[in-house]
Amino acid sequence: MTSALTTTPATGRRSRLRGLDGLRFLAAAVVVGYHYTGIDTGYWDQPPSTVFPTLNNVTRYGFLGVELFFVISGFVILMTAWGRSLPGFVASRVARLYPAYWVAVLVTVGLQVVWTGGRQLGWFDDLTNLTMAQEGFGIASVQGAFWTLWVELKFYLLAALLLLVGFTPRRIVAFAVLWPLVGEVFRLAQWSFLEDLFIVEYAPYFGVGMLLFLIHREGGTALRWAAMVVTGLLCVEQTVRHAPIGTRVVGVEISPVVCAVVVVAMIASVWLVADGPLRHVDWRWLSVVGALTYPLYLVHGQFGFAVIDTLHGHLSPYAVLAVAVALALTLAVALHYLVERRWHDRLRDGVLRLLRG
């Protein structure tokens, strides 16, 4: 969920991977489609497979957009941390995540004062949500999609520890491969605390992203591509194992084969825009929509659900869907231009001064 900037080793200049910006927005759009038409939230009063019989055949797999986010995050967070001090890395992450998130929490709490169909939490739970660590305390998030932010925070902690040790290509390869492999040991041993702490379920996706960035920055070697194969296979294994769970959650069949193909395509798509034939894509509009990714992810849930809950039965399903998407995009634009662009640099500089004393 970070801007797709990369450093060219030969020149030291930073250039934008606009294709990666586009992939970030695609991942967000897929998640929005999943929440509105893929999974049965109850707001349509019928299963979405009945309301959108054709569309649902695709959007039921939209949960995999989160996995694409994690692959991109592995790439971008390593890119962000490379060459930075630990205070600089922490300040950049705080400034990137929190301003829009704080406003999203507050406006969601305000929505749930007037709309009783959403999550009704107590004041203490609402305040705890401002930390972004509520899931770690066993407290529900004000929006369901916020669970991924806790996963991201734990990945940032691991990345910060690696930064303290020092980035080298061999250390990154070792970390990206051993992290998910050791995680599999934790899973098989049923050490649930360590499974959760080391985000075992999603470790291979972050690892693949890190390796893709390493290959992008330093070039591919036999060792790095072998590591890619190992972590990629672990990604496929994870998603195939998750397919039956997805079937129970969505209420319609989730094909393990389709999941595996989509995951391979996701990994390939990141390589395509970073180092493959699409690396020269430089359409400015991709960066414009990419900037809306994070705010769209933050606000689409409860606000879209409120639209669906209020308007279904009064308009055609596709008209209701259009209104929900339009509202989510409008709020995302407002959040980006009125909050992120105004407060990012101020908060980053303030945190940096605090950490440096």
Rank of each mutant, 00 (worst) to 15 (best):
T247K: 02
R342Q: 15
I39G: 02
V323C: 06
L55F: 06
W343D: 09
I139R: 08
A326P: 06
L20H: 00
T247E: 08
Q238G: 00
Q112T: 05
R170K: 15
G313I: 05
H312R: 11
L321C: 05
R171T: 08
A28N: 05
S92F: 04
L278S: 04
D345P: 08
A319V: 10
F146H: 04
T330M: 09
L354N: 03
F186K: 07
V307F: 00
G117A: 05
P9D: 03
V249Y: 06
F155S: 01
T2M: 14
L335A: 02
L352M: 09
L64S: 10
V200P: 09
E237A: 12
T6C: 14
L321P: 02
L212N: 04
A326Y: 04
L272M: 12
L97P: 12
L355F: 06
Q190F: 01
Y43M: 09
F146E: 00
H312T: 11
L68G: 05
W271H: 15
M132W: 09
Q190D: 14
V250G: 02
L26R: 02
H216M: 08
V250W: 00
N56A: 06
L106N: 05
G357E: 14
A291L: 06
F146W: 05
L214M: 11
L55M: 12
F155I: 07
N57Y: 06
R170M: 10
F303D: 02
L223G: 01
F206Y: 13
V261K: 00
V339E: 13
G209E: 03
L26F: 08
P47R: 02
I72V: 14
L86D: 08
L5I: 13
G209I: 08
L164F: 12
G33S: 05
R14P: 11
A91C: 12
L78P: 14
V76H: 08
H336Y: 12
L86P: 11
T37W: 07
A328Q: 01
R16E: 14
W115H: 04
A227N: 10
F193L: 15
M228Y: 01
L292E: 00
L354T: 09
A319Q: 12
V107P: 01
